[in-house]
Nucleic acid binder design. Structure first.
Lengths: 231, 231
DNA sequence: AGCCATCAGTACGGTCTCGTACAAATCTCG
DNA sequence: CGAGATTTGTACGAGACCGTACTGATGGCT
């Protein structure tokens, strides 16, 4: 599919705003194309813009000084970048970049802050997303600590699938290994195991999800349905 | 030491409030004793009170359906429980309970919400804590995914030490193994290794930190100094 | 069409952690 | 003081994952 919905309410956060709140943001929202590997925020650097993703997938990555890196969360059309700003801070120790290219709208962080101060209901919506994202990070911590590579991979694929309206996920094993913090070869083996179970189908640079339910069963409880809840 | 500071500004969140904001909360703050294993919030249950810890240590634990459990964060006198409420939600999928007994003050969540609505500066302080706690969870996800048991244990001990004004941490290996999501025997071995390095000293039911700097070095970068920052 | 860079499959020994089990040490309480 | 319960030390083989490396497959580009 990989279609580009021109629908203005593609992003779930923006879509869930009252018309008054949306009107508040609208003048400052700029449509942007989000290229693969584009950086939405850098570790410990001031955040200048917040991005509302319409299509594509962004990774939030934590790093340990210099060597170890691992993904702690995934954001797609259900969310936004720059949560530190929503929490009143101007930077975060984590990095955020596009894992799968797409598009969205961005707003200057100053303008967003001003809008939140003006509208408690807007702030409420954004804080609600912060909460669900925090839960996603918790869940990542849990599966990093207790699940096998295959289970973590299945969870990752399901989460990515939730955030892309496409059964094909365009990623290399190498990239996935960086996200999960494991060997590239380990990803290859785990993906092949999942393919042998008949739940995905592999081609170079792409993972096709063919049996979502089976994949869930294979995740051994590492995946919980709705991180995406828009309460 | 394990002294009980009667100081009213022991809790760093409360201490950092303006006098007006503190006055806003004061009438609703009830001093409470926090017993070992006391539950401050249950998974997916409505949160009725928020606790500001003065002494002691609370664990935030994520769980996976029924089987797997793991600690994602630690809270002491620098923080509070019930962050979901601060984010406008009434419950969280995580559990929160006292890991080391102590005391604190609690407030009905309704009153806290009312106070936050009245005072943006109060809300700012609490949201700032949410941010630093979110960073702590990220850091947990990172070390769960990339560090050895010994390094994760060193990180845990340092974080606990930051939050207790005592070099003695009263915990069994069994308890620690539940927190880290590993075998009890694995904790014993790792603790013994740390003791052989001369950075801690073990007695039944207690871990004494004797060389904090050495422990940091031993953590292999798993520990980052200030999760405790009160910006 | 053919070259080159990227990507994927596989293998090896080594290390870490697992699950399980048992015995020694230590504390509690009658 | 002694019995029972809790906590800790240690062992074993099994499995997961590691770092590394090599080869073959694929796709882009000239």
């Amino acid at each position: 599919m990989t279609q580009t919905s021109p629908s203005p309410d593609r992003n779930l956060l923006l879509a869930s705003l009252s018309s008054a709140d949306l009107a508040l943001l609208q003048p400052d929202l700029d449509p942007v194309s989000l290229e693969l590997k584009q950086v939405l925020e850098s570790a410990n650097e001031p955040i200048t813009h917040n991005y509302f993703i319409d299509h594509g997938l962004a990774s939030v990555v934590a790093s340990n000084g210099n060597k170890r890196r691992i993904e702690v969360g995934l954001v797609g059309f259900e969310g936004m970048s720059g949560l530190a700003v929503v929490l009143g801070n101007d930077r975060s120790p984590n990095e955020n970049f596009m894992q799968v290219g797409g598009d969205g709208r961005r707003i200057s962080s100053d303008r967003l802050i001003a809008a939140m101060q003006k509208s408690p209901s807007l702030q409420r919506v954004l804080l609600n997303f912060v909460h669900s994202f925090m839960n996603q990070i918790s869940s990542t911590a849990l599966s990093n600590g207790t699940s096998s590579i295959e289970d973590r991979l299945a969870r990752w694929l399901l989460m990515a699938h939730d955030r892309l309206d496409d059964d094909a996920i365009p990623l290399t094993h190498e990239f996935l290994s960086l996200m999960l913090g494991v060997r590239r070869a380990g990803v290859t083996v785990a993906l092949n195991a999942l393919e042998r179970k008949g739940v995905i189908s592999l081609t170079r640079g792409q993972i096709l999800i063919t049996d979502r339910e089976g994949l869930k069963a294979g995740a051994n409880g590492a995946y919980h349905e709705p991180d995406i809840a828009v309460a």
